[in-house]
């Protein structure tokens, strides 16, 4: 946590920009009246939620963090497809070769938002499902359990995502 004090103005601007982007995607047009209504609505929401959204405000605003964010999305999509094929193979096999277990894993991430993103990523890559999160420990349900030991399970489940999230949220 060596980030400098985060400017509230920057958070507000980031939130406003995000809301405007969602508005334009929803409307599918950039006509002047559409932009005007969107700007008023986004400004109102930004005013109410002045401190910004933690998913943005807790991130670092550096070039490394931006690169890591892009890499994270790529890595995540790759894992998503890979593990979906894995679970599809399990389901389609007549003998149903499951080996379920609930294991405990550890994360180095300090930021709450980063932990939530980590839990979500673990859940979306099939085979693993976050059941409970408490502090720096996560309990994960694993369809084809390969390691019950917390250290090894952490290596297999958490390490990949953690590497990128650490670069983004510190």
């Amino acid at each position: 946590m060596n980030a400098m004090p985060i400017g509230r103005a920057r958070n507000a601007v980031a939130l406003f920009a995000m809301l405007m982007l969602i508005w334009i995607m929803l409307e599918g047009s950039v006509a002047i009246d559409v932009l005007l209504v969107g700007a008023v609505a986004s400004a109102l929401v930004t005013f109410v939620q002045r401190d910004g959204l933690p998913i943005v405000t807790e991130a670092r605003f550096t070039r490394e963090a931006a690169i890591a964010a892009v890499e994270y999305v790529g890595y995540f999509l790759k894992e998503l497809v890979k593990s979906n094929l894995h679970i599809a193979a399990v389901v389609a096999t007549p003998s149903l070769p499951v080996r379920p277990g609930i294991v405990k894993v550890h994360t180095r991430l300090k930021s709450r938002t980063a932990r939530v993103l980590l839990a979500n990523s673990i859940t979306l890559t099939p085979g693993t499902l976050t059941v409970e999160i408490e502090g720096e420990w996560l309990w994960v349900h694993w369809v084809t359990m390969e390691a019950a030991d917390p250290e090894e399970a952490t290596q297999q489940i958490v390490a990949g995502f953690e590497h990128y999230l650490e670069a983004i949220y510190g």
């Binding site: 405990k104 990523s121 859940t123 499902l129 309990w139 349900h141």
Partner: peptide
């Protein structure tokens, strides 16, 4: 989607829904 899965799984576990007998470990 992952949020609703997680909330559902947590609710099931907190309501003491036992995993299948084939489950090898339940560290939670």
């Amino acid at each position: 989607n992952p949020l609703s899965s997680q909330v559902l799984a947590r609710a099931a576990h907190r309501s003491k829904v036992a995993p299948t007998a084939a489950t090898e470990v339940d560290l939670l």
